[in-house]
């Protein structure tokens, strides 16, 4: 479950867990970065990840696999303060 995190000046980031880091070559070759990634598939494992979060008034870090044993609804949206 979410673990409280110390807040520094750097903007915290998360990332995918258990897979190779995204190739740094992407930065050198933006054309390659445009390659279409395959969509995840139903019936297959959800890729695990760690992400910083804001939860119950605190800054924390959460990992998807901590929720094994529960149903999870993972929602992406384009941005805070947008309209829908």
């Amino acid at each position: 479950m979410p673990k409280e995190q110390k807040v520094g000046c750097a903007r915290p980031t998360g990332g995918v867990v258990g897979e190779a880091a995204p190739p740094e070559a992407n930065q050198a070759a933006p054309a390659a970065a445009k390659e279409v990634r395959p969509m995840v598939q139903v019936g297959k494992k959800a890729p695990d990840f760690v992400a910083p979060c804001y939860y119950e008034g605190k800054f924390a870090s959460v990992q998807l696999s901590e929720y094994l044993g529960k149903w999870v609804i993972l929602c992406f949206y384009p941005g805070d303060f947008t309209f829908v």
């Binding site: 998360g14 995918v16 995840v40 890729p47 990840f49 119950e56 008034g57």
Partner: peptide
């Protein structure tokens, strides 16, 4: 204080990329 779930941050879209969104 009524948001009952963690609001996650996806800097650089790294997680969204893997999920295809």
């Amino acid at each position: 204080g009524a948001i009952p779930f963690p609001m996650l941050s996806d800097g650089g879209g790294r997680v969204g990329s893997v999920y295809g969104v």
